[in-house]
Computed example of a mutant assay.
Amino acid sequence: MKQWLLALSVALVTAVMPMAASAELIRDDNPYVLLEKVANKTLARIAQDRDLIEADLNHTRVIIREEMLPYVDYIYAAKRVLGRNLTQTTEEQRQQFYTVFRDYLITTYAGAFTQYDESKHTIEFNRAGRFEEGSRMVVVNTRLIEQGGRPPVRLDFKMRYDNTDEVWKAYDLVVEGVSLLNSKQAEIASVIRANGIDGTIQLLREKAQEAVKPYEETEN
């Protein structure tokens, strides 16, 4: 699980919350190219803010919010996670769920980011040989490389074109054949059965508000 969350966090940075006023979306009609551009910008930001991260781990939330979230379709992902439970919710409950699911993801990624070391980890990108112009859903393949001879981790991004924002966004990540979306769907479905949708929203809200801790302390 530790390798999973590290891979997830590192990968999704390469993959909607308000951005800083000066921030501009990186745009490219080719999702492969977009992913690499976002990755390079985000990894540079992590290295630049390393002192701030070491002084306060909660700063990772700022990086995720500003660099990653604009390119993650968390609403589409949240709908997929809810699955058949979506039709059993009110509009108010759905909006609350989208918000807490987004904030929960930010906190989850922030915790796993404490394991990331830009001096040891790199990401390799497959080129867009199979991308067809006009496509609206694609799978972008990357690999997480760690120094020390460990086998590369395969990371397959599922991306869709957001017609509203006019930008490609990631909605799922498959790590070594295991889908984040499917895993979260099973987890959330179990919580909803036990606590109902309102109880699930409250539980996610509480988890989202927890302080960021070194990942070793949060691992079960």
Rank of each mutant, 00 (worst) to 15 (best):
F125S: 03
N126T: 08
R127A: 12
R127F: 13
R127D: 15
A128C: 10
A128Q: 05
A128T: 09
G129I: 00
G129C: 00
G129N: 08
R130T: 12
F131E: 00
F131M: 00
E132R: 10
E132V: 15
E132T: 14
E133A: 07
E133P: 11
E133H: 08
G134F: 12
G134P: 11
S135V: 04
S135T: 10
R136Q: 13
R136I: 11
R136G: 04
M137S: 14
M137W: 06
M137T: 15
M137H: 11
M137I: 15
M137P: 02
V138S: 00
V138L: 07
V139M: 14
V139Q: 15
V140R: 01
V140E: 12
N141L: 11
N141R: 14
N141S: 13
T142D: 01
T142C: 07
T142G: 02
T142K: 00
T142L: 08
R143G: 07
R143S: 13
R143L: 05
L144Q: 03
I145T: 06
I145V: 15
I145S: 02
E146C: 05
E146K: 11
E146N: 07
E146F: 03
E146P: 07
E146G: 05
Q147R: 10
Q147L: 08
Q147N: 09
G148S: 09
G148R: 11
G148T: 10
G149H: 12
G149F: 11
G149K: 13
G149R: 11
R150M: 03
R150T: 02
R150G: 04
V153A: 13
V153R: 14
R154G: 06
R154N: 14
R154F: 12
R154I: 13
L155C: 15
L155S: 12
L155E: 11
D156A: 15
D156I: 13
D156K: 14
F157L: 12
F157W: 13
F157S: 10
K158Y: 15
K158C: 09
K158H: 15
M159R: 05
M159W: 04
M159Y: 08
R160G: 07
R160V: 11
Y161D: 06
Y161W: 12
D162V: 00
D162Y: 02
D162R: 04
N163R: 04
N163L: 04
T164W: 04
T164Y: 07
T164I: 08
D165F: 03
E166F: 07
E166S: 14
V167S: 03
V167P: 03
V167G: 04
W168F: 08
W168C: 04
K169H: 02
K169F: 06
K169Q: 09
A170Q: 02
